[in-house]
Design a protein around this nucleic acid. Sequence first.
DNA 1: TATTGTTATACTCTATAACTATA
DNA 2: TATAGTTATAGAGTATAACAATA
Lengths: 168, 168
Amino acid sequence: MSIPSSRIAGEDDIPRLVAETRDSGSEDGETLGALDGIVGFHIRLAHNSVYRHFTETFTDLNLTQKQVSVLWLIEDSHDIAQADLGRRLQIDRATIMAIVNRLQGRGFIVRGKSPSDGRRQKLSITDQGAAALAKARIAIEEHEQWLKSHFSSAEVAQLIDLLRRIHK
Amino acid sequence: MSIPSSRIAGEDDIPRLVAETRDSGSEDGETLGALDGIVGFHIRLAHNSVYRHFTETFTDLNLTQKQVSVLWLIEDSHDIAQADLGRRLQIDRATIMAIVNRLQGRGFIVRGKSPSDGRRQKLSITDQGAAALAKARIAIEEHEQWLKSHFSSAEVAQLIDLLRRIHK
DNA sequence: TATTGTTATACTCTATAACTATA
DNA sequence: TATAGTTATAGAGTATAACAATA
C-alpha cells in the first residue's frame, strides 16, 4: 500500500540523462527542431524536471506532489470536503478519492460525516499527518530553493503570473 | 491495444471543474493559502491544464503528448534510436520502449537494425504515421493557439525562456 | 435534478531491476 | 566496462461510467 522507497529516484538516472545530452560524442545532435518552438512542449519538459527533482527530494518521506498538496489544504482549512479539494486543485473526483484513500491508509487523515450536509465528509489531519506535513514543508522549502535558483526574484514573480494565467 | 476514444476527455468534465471554481455559492472560499506562493505548485497546475486541453483537442486522433513528440522527432531525424529519443525528450529508456511499442503497434513507425552499430535500432516513420503526424500538427497548432492566447508574443518568448532554464 | 462520495475499470506515464547482445 | 534494447513489475495519476445517499 505504501510506496517502496527503493523504487524512487535512482541517483544515477537523472544525472545520466542530463550529462549525456551535453557531452556524449555520439551522432545525437540534440536538436529538437520545430518542437523547440512549442510552448506546451516546454511546459511538459519543465514539469517533468520539477517532478523528478521533487521525487528525489521526497524519497525518504514517500509523499507525492499531489499528496502533499492535499495534506497541506486539509490542514489549512479544517473539515474541507473531497469535492472542495478537487475544485481547488483541479483534480477529478475519482482521483481525489484515490489520493485521500492512500493518505487515510497511512493514518495521515481521517474522514468524518458533516453534520450539516449528509453528502459531504469533513476531512481532518491527524497528529501523524501533521508531523509528516511539517517535514514535507521543510523538504518543499529545499525543493523550491532549487527551483528558484534558476531565477531572480522578479522572474519568479513573473513566472508565477504567467503560469497562473494558464490554469486560472 | 489501441486507445478507446470513448474514454478520453468527456466534454462536460473540464468545464465543470473550472466553472464551479468561479461561481459556485458553496462554503468553498477557493483560497489556496500559502500553497499559492509555491512555484512548483503553479507549474503542476499549468501543466495539468495544458494536458487536459491537449487531450480534448486530440480526442479524435488518439495521440498523447509524448506520442506526438516521439513521432515528430522520428520524422525530423530519420533513423534516430530509442536512446536518442530518451535523451532529447528526457524520458526513461523503459518508458520510451513502451511508447515506441504503442506507436509500432498502430503501424505508425517501424524498427530496423542499424548497420553500423548492432546495438542500436533505427526508427523510421511509415506513411500511415506521417499522415497521423500531419493531422497532429494541425491539432497542435490549434492547441498552441489556445495556449498563446493568454499572452502577448513577448510574454510567450519570455515564458519559453524561463521554462527552458528549468529543464535545460 | 444536482451534488457527494463511492467502486470498478482501464490506460498512460514513470521508474527499478535484471537480462541479453553488442561495442 | 559501457551502451542499447528488452521484459517484468509496480505504483501514481488520470478519467469514464455507474451507483447510492442526500439535498
